Every structure is written in structure tokens, then in C-alpha cells.
Amino acid sequence: MTSILTNVAAMSALQTLRSIDSSMEDTQARVSSGLRVETASDNAAYWSIATTMRSDNMSLAAVEDALGLGAAKVDTAYSGMESAIEVVKEIKAKITAATEDGVDKDKIQEEITQLQDQLVSISEAASFSGENWLQADITAAGGSEVKSVVASFVRDANGDVSVKKVNYTLDSTSVLFDSGGDTGILDTIQTVEGNGVTVNVNIAGTTTPYNVLSYTTAEVIADGATFDSGGVVAVGGTVSAGYVKVDDDVWVAAIDQSGATDHEIFATDVDTSGVWAIDETNLASATALTTSVATLSIDNSTSSTQLDGLLQMVDDALEAMTSAASALGSISSRIEMQQEFVASLTDSIDTGIGRLVDADMNEESTRLKALQTQQQLAIQSLSIANSASESVLSLFK
């Protein structure tokens, strides 16, 4: 039946054209945006996941920046520590050179002073973004202070998020100088054995160890003492009545106490039958040195015993600095690995999001071409359907 009021064919063609136009709009949106899930209405579940993961990726980007900042801090501290180690090695070498007989220790101290000033300069300069890990007020911090470097952003199975950090503790084993006290590796005041030797002195039947002044053979000779041909006694020194040798190149002042029985006997003078010992009234205690690597000082009066003590102190500091440098190196290596992991993780998340929401451009372009063809055919069909009613006019001619 042909009707001029109701054109069923045109209505059907129009409905088809509307459907094609709607599909074309969706396809064109995907082609222009590159996304098949652009809004929650496209796919609520995928859109929600993608939005959350994009947010996490932004946090990971911030973590990557923080890792770069942390790496710079650690590298600055490591470079300063490494330079300081080389300077302390030089100080150790200078003290070793000072142990040689006839060396002008005053001249060596001039070099050591310059090296000590260099240590202060290095520690002050090892600062990045206002933080200095080689010089800090750890006394005010209660003996230690924890520095943190952001390492990662984590979302657990429950959806809870957190930021993980790498910690480095500033304390007496890692800081070169304590700006609020004297507890750093280089400024800790230590007691170094003085110019003395420990001997056992028998007083009234009780033997007690004493740290008494000691002298080298060269010092004994310089004092004008003459050696007894029958033993190890050097007689005639101005320090006391004489000296007794108690070890290789180690002498202690003694007096002749012939017939005494309540004193430690060090030697018997064969020529004079004298008994040489230390009397409790003649004990001269050796004074221990209290100093640090940053403040130690030597001169021509510094004994070999004192030099040995100073050398041990510097070596202990060098060992502590080496350990601290190893810790910094380990953190630096960990940060570098974490940077690589975060970069890889960011790429993986981007890839995962793409698999959920990205449009397949090959598929969409093919679909667009097909829809364009369908649209043209639908328009042509609508045109034919609209022209069908015109044939009714010919019946009235």
C-alpha cells in the first residue's frame, strides 16, 4: 500500500541512518582520541582502573624525581668522604715519616695542619640542597639523626598506599665533624698513651702497675748519662741518679737503692754492686695525650710512644671513614637500582593502562571506512524512499 501520509520505507531508512551516524560518532571519537574507553560510560570498570593507575603513575614520577634528589645528596656525601679519606691517608703518612730518627717533626706538623684545615673545608663544602651528611649537630639530636631518601610508592592488596624510604643514620661512626660537640670521626677527643711505659713497682710488699715516664736511648745519651759496662744501667743523668733499660730503646729513671727489699729491682750494677729501682717517692707518671685527628699536634719533643698512639688513632679514624664510605656507596647503588626499577614500573603501568583503554587504530579505521560506506548507502536509500510518494502524482495526470 502506498500512502502519502505514512512513508514506512522512509522511516525505516531514517532509523538505519541514525544508527549508522551514532556508530560513526563513537568510531570518530575513538579515532580522534585514540581511546576506546575515554569516559566512565564507555566501560565503568576499565575507566576506574585506568584512572587509579594513572594517579599512581603520577606518584611514581614524583618518586623518580625524589630519587634523583636523594642520589645527589648521597653522591655529594660520598665524594666528600672519599676526598677526606685521601687527606687522612696523607696525615697517616706524615706521622709515619715523623717516627724516623732525625726528622724535623715541627716541619711535618706544618704539613699536617694544612691537611687538617683541608678536612674542615671538605666537610663544610659537602652540602647539597641545604643538607650536609658529613658535618651535623648530632649531639643536639641525641647522638644520632636519621636522613631519609624516598625510594618507592606502594599500593597494597587492600588499596592502602604508602611511601617507602631508604634511611641513613648520622652518628659518631658516619659524621666527620659534630658541629654541636666532639663525637664525630675526626673531632672525637681520645686518650693517647703518653711518653711512658707500664712497670710493676713493689711497694711494701704490694706490686702495683704504674705508667711512668720513659726515655729513648738517644734521650738518655743526650742527658749525659754514661753506661755501666757490667749491665744495662746508665749512670749520671740529670733526671735522676740514673736510668734502667726495661725494653728495646725504652729506659726509666731509677735510683740506687742498694740493700732495699721493698722496691721493684730493675737491674744490678755489677761494677758498683748497686741496686737500681724505682722508689715510690720518685714515681713520675707519664701524662697521656688527649687529642683528636682534627687537632693532633706533634713537635720535636713528641716521643716514639706518642707517635705510635697518634698513628693508631688516625688509622682507627681511617677505618671508620672507610666503613662510612662503604655504607654511602651501598645506598647509592640501591638508589640507582631503584631508579631503574621505577622507570621500568612506570612503563609497565602505562602499557597495562593502554591494553585496557587504548583503541585499536587499525580496527577503528577499518570500521570508520565501513560506516562511511553504510552512511552513503543509507542516505541513498532514504532518498529513494522519499521519492516513492512522488509517483502518486502521476496517477492524477
Score class of each variant (00 low, 15 high):
18 R>G: 07
229 S>I: 11
93 A>L: 01
121 S>P: 02
383 S>L: 04
282 N>I: 09
374 Q>M: 07
52 T>R: 10
110 E>I: 14
383 S>K: 05
132 N>V: 14
317 A>L: 04
78 Y>M: 08
87 V>G: 01
78 Y>C: 01
89 K>A: 07
249 D>M: 06
102 G>D: 12
108 I>L: 03
306 Q>V: 15
106 D>V: 05
45 A>R: 05
41 S>V: 05
288 A>Y: 02
154 V>E: 13
389 S>F: 02
29 A>S: 06
104 D>A: 06
60 L>C: 01
343 A>M: 08
165 K>M: 03
66 A>V: 02
297 S>W: 02
319 E>L: 08
250 V>Y: 08
268 T>G: 13
39 T>I: 11
20 I>M: 05
299 D>L: 09
390 E>W: 00
372 Q>T: 12
116 Q>E: 09
367 R>V: 07
262 D>P: 10
185 I>D: 04
313 M>V: 14
388 A>R: 03
395 L>T: 00
285 S>L: 10
226 T>N: 12
357 V>E: 07
160 D>F: 01
159 G>C: 08
216 T>S: 13
24 M>L: 15
397 K>T: 11
52 T>E: 12
137 D>T: 15
169 T>A: 08
151 A>F: 00
220 V>F: 01
94 K>S: 05
147 K>T: 08
265 I>P: 04
232 V>F: 11
276 W>S: 02
353 I>A: 10
386 N>D: 06
390 E>I: 07
136 A>S: 14
172 S>C: 03
46 Y>K: 05
337 M>S: 15
101 D>F: 07
166 V>Y: 02
118 Q>D: 14
221 I>T: 06
365 S>L: 13
